[in-house]
Write a protein that binds this DNA or RNA. Structure first.
Lengths: 207, 207
DNA sequence: CCGACGTTTCGGTCTGCGTCGAAACGTGTC
DNA sequence: GACACGTTTCGACGCAGACCGAAACGTCGG
């Protein structure tokens, strides 16, 4: 028989309203905790835990423990693209409301991914840091160089702020709107915080 | 509330093995009767009728009466692309599942993916077109070059046939059996049609 | 060490839906 | 007009799974 990979297993994961609500909430690119996702889907934390276990088992989302919170994010760009295709198909076939535009060009240009800068601006910042020699890229594994550390100090970030438990200082975070990596990790968080402090940017209301 | 189009409705349609079997059977591009689809999914005609009614209501397939038979086909290229995405995601995540892909070497070698050539032959054709300079590959984004356009014209394909509304001319379609990309889009469709016209290949009986 | 908090597991209920048997409907054939 | 064939409708059965209450587990703060 022609039975290929079992699409029905993935399809069944996308067949529950609670799970699709969680996935659309994760489409913004920022990682959310299990409790936040439960509130998003209007269900109890117990039920949300069951759903999230299924989603991780189906490799649609990835989980990362941080303290007593568990942060969930989409597994990769393919999942985001799949959700986009489904939304388009549902909008074409569905007699439903239209989608609240995630294709906002401003959102694509600069946005915040959990706690660091994303979008085109985040990608450009990582590129600039690599070009300056502040960060070394060895096949996706990022590390802060010695001149990079002094540059960061001159930027007004204490190195103590970077030591955030078991969280890596530098981490590459793939952006599914731009399809390229930007700087995550505690350094990315500290840089974003410093940018806010300097008043170079501010959060827009409404997320 | 951010409730967009109900993705869960479409996802639920893809969550049943019988329905996904029918849809994958329709991926060959040819229209099949309700009875053939029932045999394909190994269910009774009554159950198949119920499933097909749901699929047509969800705008995933279209039906056309012809005599006392009802022919079903995929609603459009978007549905085929969605199925391909799902298959790729299921193949990536489903290592624990028994099926590692089509074991039939002939099916792996050359098959038709909705309306264009797939399998090893499809991958080889795309590689040849890129090596010849007819198609430019910029990180997954395919585009037809100027010498490529003249080559296509010499092959007997009018450029008018390529302008298919909102459908891209060139598109990379990841093949879940070969794990590499082949040529989709309206150009892939036109090339396959020309191959059939020239008599270089023919459809085998039995799908 | 203790209490607060977020998350997960367990047990139980209940709705939804896939499935098939029997039969009705529509269409082409003799 | 009678029959054969493919398709659809109706009714009933049974299983999978979504949901929540109660409670256990792990982590952080005092």
């Amino acid at each position: 028989m022609r039975s290929g990979p079992d699409i029905a297993r993935i399809g069944a994961l996308l067949g529950d309203p609670a799970r699709t609500h969680m996935l659309t909430a994760l489409m913004s690119g920022e990682a959310l905790t299990a409790g936040e996702l439960a509130r998003e889907a209007a269900i109890t934390p117990q039920t949300a835990s069951s759903h999230l276990a299924k989603l991780t088992d189906g490799a649609l989302v990835t989980q990362r423990r941080q303290g007593r919170c568990v942060y969930y994010a989409l597994a990769g760009p393919e999942v985001a693209e799949l959700m986009e295709s489904l939304a388009g198909l549902a909008a074409a076939a569905g007699h439903r409301r239209t989608r609240p535009g995630p294709r906002d060009p401003a959102l694509r240009r600069a946005r915040v991914c959990y706690d660091h800068l994303a979008g085109d601006m985040g990608v450009a910042m990582l590129d600039a840091l690599v070009a300056r020699g502040a960060i070394e890229d060895r096949g996706g594994a990022l590390s802060l160089t010695e001149p990079g550390a002094s540059f960061v100090r001159a930027f007004g970030i204490a190195e103590v702020a970077l030591e955030d438990g078991r969280r890596p200082v530098c981490r590459a975070c793939l952006d599914w709107s731009v399809r390229r990596s930007h700087l995550a990790g505690s350094l990315g968080k500290a840089l974003l915080g410093r940018i806010f402090e300097q008043g170079w940017a501010r959060r827009l209301e409404g997320g």
